[in-house]
């Protein structure tokens, strides 16, 4: 469960902050993440900043890309799923 999205902190006043996601802003509570500063990216769930979002995401992806480099690409086509669609239509 638990829909949560990363957003950037625009301002903080006491326990209330305002965050932005693609230009959409909302007031949220900073009670659970008092260490957050203006400019930080934070994970927002149910109107609360829950955690700082670090740069690790990009690092993780780079590491995975390196790991996959040279791995074969043998199932790029959708043949399996298309036949499933046809089966669905036939039924």
């Amino acid at each position: 469960m638990c829909l949560a999205v990363p957003a950037q902190v625009l301002e903080i006043e006491g326990a209330i902050g305002r965050v932005s996601l693609s230009g959409v802003t909302r007031e949220i509570s900073m009670m659970l993440l008092p260490e957050a500063k203006v400019g930080d990216f934070v994970l927002v769930h149910a109107g609360f900043a829950m955690q700082l979002v670090s740069e690790k995401e990009a690092e993780e992806t780079d590491a995975l890309l390196a790991e996959m480099n040279g791995a074969p690409r043998t199932v790029g086509d959708l043949s399996g799923t298309v036949s499933a669609m046809e089966a669905a239509g036939a039924r």
Binding site: M1, C2, L3, H45, A46, L78, V82, M85, E86, A88
Partner: peptide, 29 residues
């Protein structure tokens, strides 16, 4: 193929059904 069905090819190359929406749009957590 698949008459009566709406399918969506996803960004990563998967395939799924796009179903009829259920009605009221309310935020969820």
């Amino acid at each position: 193929e698949a008459p009566g069905t709406v399918a969506l090819e996803t960004a990563i190359g998967g395939l799924r059904i796009v179903d009829m929406p259920l009605g009221a749009i309310v935020p969820r957590i």
